[in-house]
Protein backbone atom coordinates (compact mmCIF):
# COMPACT_ATOMS: atom_id res chain seq x y z
CA UNK A 1 0.00 0.00 0.00
CA UNK A 2 2.69 2.40 1.04
CA UNK A 3 4.67 1.40 -1.99
CA UNK A 4 1.81 2.43 -4.23
CA UNK A 5 1.53 5.81 -2.57
CA UNK A 6 5.24 6.41 -2.95
CA UNK A 7 5.11 5.44 -6.60
CA UNK A 8 2.18 7.70 -7.25
CA UNK A 9 3.94 10.54 -5.50
CA UNK A 10 7.11 9.97 -7.47
CA UNK A 11 5.29 9.88 -10.80
CA UNK A 12 3.37 12.97 -9.82
CA UNK A 13 6.51 14.79 -8.85
CA UNK A 14 8.15 13.81 -12.12
CA UNK A 15 5.19 15.11 -14.09
CA UNK A 16 5.23 18.36 -12.17
CA UNK A 17 8.95 18.63 -12.70
CA UNK A 18 8.82 18.14 -16.41
CA UNK A 19 5.54 19.94 -16.88
CA UNK A 20 2.62 18.02 -18.26
CA UNK A 21 1.96 17.80 -21.91
CA UNK A 22 4.33 18.10 -24.77
CA UNK A 23 8.02 18.76 -24.47
CA UNK A 24 9.84 19.78 -27.60
CA UNK A 25 13.41 18.78 -27.18
CA UNK A 26 14.42 20.60 -30.30
CA UNK A 27 13.87 23.87 -28.44
CA UNK A 28 16.20 23.21 -25.61
CA UNK A 29 19.14 25.28 -24.58
CA UNK A 30 22.31 23.90 -23.05
CA UNK A 31 21.98 23.44 -19.28
CA UNK A 32 25.12 25.50 -18.88
CA UNK A 33 23.67 28.50 -20.71
CA UNK A 34 22.66 31.73 -18.96
CA UNK A 35 23.98 30.68 -15.58
CA UNK A 36 23.84 33.22 -12.75
CA UNK A 37 21.88 35.75 -14.70
CA UNK A 38 24.60 36.22 -17.27
CA UNK A 39 23.56 36.41 -20.89
CA UNK A 40 25.14 33.46 -22.58
CA UNK A 41 25.97 32.73 -26.18
CA UNK A 42 26.98 29.23 -27.17
CA UNK A 43 29.24 29.00 -30.18
CA UNK A 44 30.10 25.91 -32.13
CA UNK A 45 33.80 25.40 -32.69
CA UNK A 46 34.83 23.08 -35.44
CA UNK A 47 37.95 21.09 -35.08
CA UNK A 48 40.23 23.24 -37.30
CA UNK A 49 42.13 26.18 -36.02
CA UNK A 50 40.66 28.72 -38.42
CA UNK A 51 37.29 28.08 -36.88
CA UNK A 52 38.84 28.46 -33.45
CA UNK A 53 40.22 31.82 -34.47
CA UNK A 54 36.79 33.08 -35.53
CA UNK A 55 35.26 31.90 -32.30
CA UNK A 56 38.09 33.25 -30.14
CA UNK A 57 37.72 36.77 -31.51
CA UNK A 58 33.93 36.70 -31.42
CA UNK A 59 34.08 35.35 -27.86
CA UNK A 60 36.54 38.03 -26.78
CA UNK A 61 34.39 40.81 -28.17
CA UNK A 62 31.17 39.37 -26.76
CA UNK A 63 32.71 39.03 -23.33
CA UNK A 64 34.74 42.22 -23.11
CA UNK A 65 32.77 44.65 -25.22
CA UNK A 66 29.21 43.41 -24.71
CA UNK A 67 29.41 41.61 -21.36
CA UNK A 68 28.17 38.19 -22.42
CA UNK A 69 29.28 34.86 -21.08
CA UNK A 70 30.35 32.62 -23.94
CA UNK A 71 30.30 28.83 -23.97
CA UNK A 72 32.03 27.00 -26.77
CA UNK A 73 31.35 23.45 -27.80
CA UNK A 74 33.37 21.49 -30.27
CA UNK A 75 31.09 19.71 -32.69
CA UNK A 76 31.79 18.32 -36.12
CA UNK A 77 30.35 20.13 -39.08
CA UNK A 78 27.28 18.10 -39.91
CA UNK A 79 26.10 17.40 -36.38
CA UNK A 80 26.64 21.08 -35.65
CA UNK A 81 23.77 21.90 -38.01
CA UNK A 82 21.48 19.68 -36.02
CA UNK A 83 22.63 21.23 -32.76
CA UNK A 84 22.20 24.71 -34.24
CA UNK A 85 18.71 23.88 -35.32
CA UNK A 86 17.85 22.67 -31.81
CA UNK A 87 19.28 25.80 -30.25
CA UNK A 88 21.95 23.94 -28.32
CA UNK A 89 24.40 26.20 -30.05
CA UNK A 90 23.54 29.69 -31.22
CA UNK A 91 25.89 30.14 -34.17
CA UNK A 92 28.30 28.48 -36.56
CA UNK A 93 30.84 31.02 -37.74
CA UNK A 94 32.48 29.14 -40.57
CA UNK A 95 30.67 26.75 -42.84
CA UNK A 96 32.22 25.21 -45.91
CA UNK A 97 29.00 24.47 -47.71
CA UNK A 98 26.54 21.73 -46.84
CA UNK A 99 23.73 21.97 -49.41
CA UNK A 100 21.73 19.08 -47.93
CA UNK A 101 21.69 20.57 -44.47
CA UNK A 102 20.94 24.01 -45.80
CA UNK A 103 17.98 22.69 -47.69
CA UNK A 104 16.62 20.89 -44.66
CA UNK A 105 17.11 23.49 -41.95
CA UNK A 106 17.15 26.84 -43.71
CA UNK A 107 14.64 26.23 -46.47
CA UNK A 108 12.32 23.55 -45.00
CA UNK A 109 12.33 23.81 -41.24
CA UNK A 110 13.35 27.46 -41.05
CA UNK A 111 15.12 26.86 -37.77
CA UNK A 112 18.41 28.26 -39.05
CA UNK A 113 19.12 31.48 -40.89
CA UNK A 114 22.10 32.48 -42.93
CA UNK A 115 24.24 34.96 -41.01
CA UNK A 116 26.10 36.37 -43.99
CA UNK A 117 29.58 35.70 -45.33
CA UNK A 118 32.64 35.39 -43.15
CA UNK A 119 34.73 37.27 -45.64
CA UNK A 120 37.08 34.39 -46.14
CA UNK A 121 37.16 32.18 -49.21
CA UNK A 122 37.98 28.56 -48.62
CA UNK A 123 39.64 26.21 -51.01
CA UNK A 124 40.45 22.53 -50.77
CA UNK A 125 43.20 20.94 -52.80
CA UNK A 126 46.15 18.57 -52.96
CA UNK A 127 49.44 19.95 -51.76
CA UNK A 128 53.11 19.03 -51.77
CA UNK A 129 55.71 20.82 -49.66
CA UNK A 130 57.31 23.72 -51.47
CA UNK A 131 60.82 22.38 -50.90
CA UNK A 132 59.84 19.30 -52.86
CA UNK A 133 58.07 21.27 -55.57
CA UNK A 134 61.19 23.36 -56.09
CA UNK A 135 63.30 20.28 -56.72
CA UNK A 136 60.72 18.68 -58.95
CA UNK A 137 58.62 21.44 -60.54
CA UNK A 138 56.58 19.03 -62.65
CA UNK A 139 55.07 17.39 -59.56
CA UNK A 140 52.57 20.21 -59.36
CA UNK A 141 50.61 18.77 -62.28
CA UNK A 142 48.45 15.74 -61.48
CA UNK A 143 49.49 14.11 -64.74
CA UNK A 144 53.01 13.63 -63.40
CA UNK A 145 52.04 12.36 -59.97
CA UNK A 146 52.45 8.70 -60.88
CA UNK A 147 56.12 9.38 -61.58
CA UNK A 148 56.63 10.27 -57.95
CA UNK A 149 54.51 7.54 -56.41
CA UNK A 150 57.63 5.67 -55.43
CA UNK A 151 59.09 8.58 -53.51
CA UNK A 152 55.81 9.20 -51.73
CA UNK A 153 55.48 5.69 -50.43
CA UNK A 154 55.09 4.96 -46.71
CA UNK A 155 54.64 1.73 -44.79
CA UNK A 156 51.00 2.58 -44.42
CA UNK A 157 50.31 2.98 -48.14
CA UNK A 158 51.89 -0.32 -49.05
CA UNK A 159 53.23 -0.48 -52.60
CA UNK A 160 51.62 2.78 -53.73
CA UNK A 161 52.23 6.43 -53.06
CA UNK A 162 50.50 7.97 -50.07
CA UNK A 163 47.86 10.65 -50.35
CA UNK A 164 47.13 11.77 -46.83
CA UNK A 165 43.59 12.78 -45.96
CA UNK A 166 42.55 14.32 -42.70
CA UNK A 167 39.54 14.34 -40.47
CA UNK A 168 36.56 12.26 -41.51
CA UNK A 169 34.38 15.30 -40.98
CA UNK A 170 35.87 17.12 -43.97
CA UNK A 171 34.44 17.15 -47.45
CA UNK A 172 36.58 14.89 -49.59
CA UNK A 173 36.38 13.23 -53.01
CA UNK A 174 39.90 11.89 -52.86
CA UNK A 175 39.14 8.19 -53.13
CA UNK A 176 37.09 8.81 -56.27
CA UNK A 177 39.70 11.18 -57.67
CA UNK A 178 42.53 8.67 -57.26
CA UNK A 179 40.37 6.07 -58.92
CA UNK A 180 39.08 8.22 -61.76
CA UNK A 181 42.42 9.83 -62.55
CA UNK A 182 44.12 6.43 -62.54
CA UNK A 183 46.68 7.45 -59.95
CA UNK A 184 48.98 4.94 -58.36
CA UNK A 185 48.14 6.22 -54.91
CA UNK A 186 46.53 5.01 -51.75
CA UNK A 187 44.41 7.38 -49.67
CA UNK A 188 45.46 7.15 -46.03
CA UNK A 189 43.11 8.79 -43.55
CA UNK A 190 44.90 10.49 -40.69
CA UNK A 191 41.59 10.37 -38.86
CA UNK A 192 41.85 13.82 -37.37
CA UNK A 193 43.33 17.14 -38.31
CA UNK A 194 45.57 17.03 -35.29
CA UNK A 195 47.12 13.80 -36.48
CA UNK A 196 47.49 15.16 -40.00
CA UNK A 197 49.21 18.37 -38.89
CA UNK A 198 51.53 16.50 -36.58
CA UNK A 199 52.51 14.17 -39.39
CA UNK A 200 53.05 17.03 -41.84
CA UNK A 201 55.29 18.80 -39.35
CA UNK A 202 57.32 15.66 -38.81
CA UNK A 203 57.77 15.22 -42.56
CA UNK A 204 58.77 18.86 -42.94
CA UNK A 205 61.30 18.62 -40.18
CA UNK A 206 63.09 15.92 -42.14
CA UNK A 207 62.46 17.57 -45.50
CA UNK A 208 60.70 14.44 -46.71
CA UNK A 209 58.32 14.61 -49.66
CA UNK A 210 54.61 14.07 -49.07
CA UNK A 211 51.28 14.60 -50.79
CA UNK A 212 48.35 15.74 -48.71
CA UNK A 213 44.77 16.87 -48.86
CA UNK A 214 44.78 20.38 -47.42
CA UNK A 215 42.82 23.57 -47.46
CA UNK A 216 43.29 27.28 -47.39
CA UNK A 217 43.15 29.51 -45.44
CA UNK A 218 45.25 27.56 -43.04
CA UNK A 219 47.92 28.75 -40.64
CA UNK A 220 50.11 25.74 -41.35
CA UNK A 221 51.17 27.27 -44.69
CA UNK A 222 53.17 29.78 -42.70
CA UNK A 223 55.06 26.99 -40.95
CA UNK A 224 55.30 24.50 -43.76
CA UNK A 225 55.07 26.22 -47.11
CA UNK A 226 53.12 24.04 -49.50
CA UNK A 227 52.35 24.23 -53.18
CA UNK A 228 49.08 23.09 -54.69
CA UNK A 229 49.00 20.29 -57.22
CA UNK A 230 46.83 21.21 -60.19
CA UNK A 231 43.90 18.90 -60.69
CA UNK A 232 41.57 19.02 -63.74
CA UNK A 233 39.83 22.38 -63.50
CA UNK A 234 36.61 22.75 -61.53
CA UNK A 235 33.46 23.32 -63.53
CA UNK A 236 30.04 23.91 -62.05
CA UNK A 237 28.44 20.50 -61.45
CA UNK A 238 31.48 18.38 -62.18
CA UNK A 239 31.33 17.07 -58.61
CA UNK A 240 27.61 16.24 -58.71
CA UNK A 241 28.12 12.48 -58.70
CA UNK A 242 30.51 11.61 -55.87
CA UNK A 243 31.49 8.35 -57.60
CA UNK A 244 32.54 9.98 -60.87
CA UNK A 245 34.34 13.10 -59.69
CA UNK A 246 37.44 13.86 -61.71
CA UNK A 247 37.95 17.56 -61.15
CA UNK A 248 39.39 19.95 -58.58
CA UNK A 249 37.56 21.30 -55.54
CA UNK A 250 35.72 24.64 -55.87
CA UNK A 251 36.53 27.93 -54.17
CA UNK A 252 33.92 28.44 -51.47
CA UNK A 253 33.00 31.75 -49.84
CA UNK A 254 32.61 30.67 -46.21
CA UNK A 255 29.27 31.36 -44.54
CA UNK A 256 27.96 32.02 -41.06
CA UNK A 257 24.72 30.46 -39.80
CA UNK A 258 22.61 31.43 -36.81
CA UNK A 259 19.82 29.70 -34.98
CA UNK A 260 16.61 31.37 -36.15
CA UNK A 261 15.36 32.26 -32.67
CA UNK A 262 18.73 33.56 -31.63
CA UNK A 263 18.96 35.69 -34.76
CA UNK A 264 15.63 37.24 -33.84
CA UNK A 265 16.01 37.64 -30.06
CA UNK A 266 19.76 37.56 -29.63
CA UNK A 267 20.10 41.32 -29.29
CA UNK A 268 23.56 42.77 -29.51
CA UNK A 269 25.20 39.38 -29.65
CA UNK A 270 23.25 38.33 -32.73
CA UNK A 271 23.93 41.68 -34.32
CA UNK A 272 27.66 41.36 -33.71
CA UNK A 273 27.78 37.84 -35.10
CA UNK A 274 25.90 38.91 -38.24
CA UNK A 275 28.33 41.78 -38.79
CA UNK A 276 31.41 39.69 -38.11
CA UNK A 277 33.51 39.72 -41.29
CA UNK A 278 37.26 39.64 -41.72
CA UNK A 279 39.95 38.63 -44.16
CA UNK A 280 41.98 35.51 -44.73
CA UNK A 281 45.04 37.31 -43.39
CA UNK A 282 43.26 38.30 -40.20
CA UNK A 283 42.12 34.76 -39.59
CA UNK A 284 45.55 33.32 -40.30
CA UNK A 285 47.17 35.75 -37.93
CA UNK A 286 45.01 34.61 -35.04
CA UNK A 287 45.25 30.94 -36.06
CA UNK A 288 48.99 31.08 -36.09
CA UNK A 289 49.11 32.59 -32.64
CA UNK A 290 46.90 29.80 -31.33
CA UNK A 291 48.35 26.85 -33.12
CA UNK A 292 51.95 27.71 -33.45
CA UNK A 293 52.85 30.10 -30.68
CA UNK A 294 50.50 28.09 -28.47
CA UNK A 295 48.82 31.15 -27.05
CA UNK A 296 45.47 30.46 -25.48
CA UNK A 297 42.69 31.40 -27.89
CA UNK A 298 41.74 34.17 -25.50
CA UNK A 299 45.22 35.62 -25.46
CA UNK A 300 45.51 35.41 -29.23
CA UNK A 301 42.15 37.11 -29.67
CA UNK A 302 43.19 39.87 -27.29
CA UNK A 303 46.33 40.60 -29.29
CA UNK A 304 44.45 40.76 -32.54
CA UNK A 305 41.65 42.87 -31.06
CA UNK A 306 44.17 45.29 -29.57
CA UNK A 307 45.84 45.86 -32.91
CA UNK A 308 42.84 45.85 -35.27
CA UNK A 309 40.35 48.10 -33.60
CA UNK A 310 39.24 49.69 -36.85
CA UNK A 311 38.17 46.32 -38.21
CA UNK A 312 35.99 45.20 -35.33
CA UNK A 313 34.57 48.60 -34.38
CA UNK A 314 32.34 48.45 -37.43
CA UNK A 315 30.84 45.13 -36.23
CA UNK A 316 29.56 46.73 -33.05
CA UNK A 317 27.14 49.12 -34.62
Amino acid sequence: MRVRITTTAAVGALLLLTGCGAADMTKQASPFANAQGAKTVTLSVQSWVGAQANVAVAQYLLEHELGYRVDTVQIDEVPAWDALSQGRVDAILEDWGHPDQEQRYVQDKKTIVNGGGLGVTGHIGWYVPTYFAKQHPDVTDWKNLNKYADQLRTPESGGKGQLMDGSPSYVTNDKALVENLNLDYQVVFAGSEAAQITQIKQFAKEQKPFLTYWYAPQWLFKKVPMTEVKLPAYKEGCDADPEKVACAYPHTPLQKYLNADFAKDGGEAAALLKQFKWTTEDQNEVSLMIADQKLTPEEAAKRWVDSHESTWRSWLS
Binding site: L14, L17, T18, A23, D24, M25, T26, Q28, P31, F32
Partner: peptide, 30 residues
Protein backbone atom coordinates in the same frame (compact mmCIF):
# COMPACT_ATOMS: atom_id res chain seq x y z
CA UNK B 1 15.43 14.40 -37.51
CA UNK B 2 12.28 15.41 -39.35
CA UNK B 3 9.90 14.26 -36.65
CA UNK B 4 11.81 15.19 -33.56
CA UNK B 5 9.73 18.32 -33.04
CA UNK B 6 6.37 16.87 -33.97
CA UNK B 7 5.96 13.16 -33.32
CA UNK B 8 4.19 12.28 -30.04
CA UNK B 9 6.89 9.79 -29.08
CA UNK B 10 9.33 12.65 -28.93
CA UNK B 11 6.94 15.26 -27.59
CA UNK B 12 5.41 13.20 -24.82
CA UNK B 13 8.18 10.85 -23.80
CA UNK B 14 11.69 11.45 -25.03
CA UNK B 15 11.20 15.20 -24.84
CA UNK B 16 10.40 14.91 -21.15
CA UNK B 17 13.37 12.68 -20.57
CA UNK B 18 15.54 15.20 -22.32
CA UNK B 19 14.01 18.08 -20.38
CA UNK B 20 14.42 16.33 -17.08
CA UNK B 21 18.09 15.71 -17.79
CA UNK B 22 18.73 19.29 -18.82
CA UNK B 23 16.87 20.58 -15.80
CA UNK B 24 18.72 18.32 -13.38
CA UNK B 25 22.13 19.14 -14.80
CA UNK B 26 21.28 22.79 -14.71
CA UNK B 27 20.18 22.69 -11.09
CA UNK B 28 23.37 20.97 -10.02
CA UNK B 29 25.49 23.29 -12.11
CA UNK B 30 23.86 26.40 -10.66
Amino acid sequence: IDNRDSHPLFLYFLGHVSNAVVLAVRVVYL
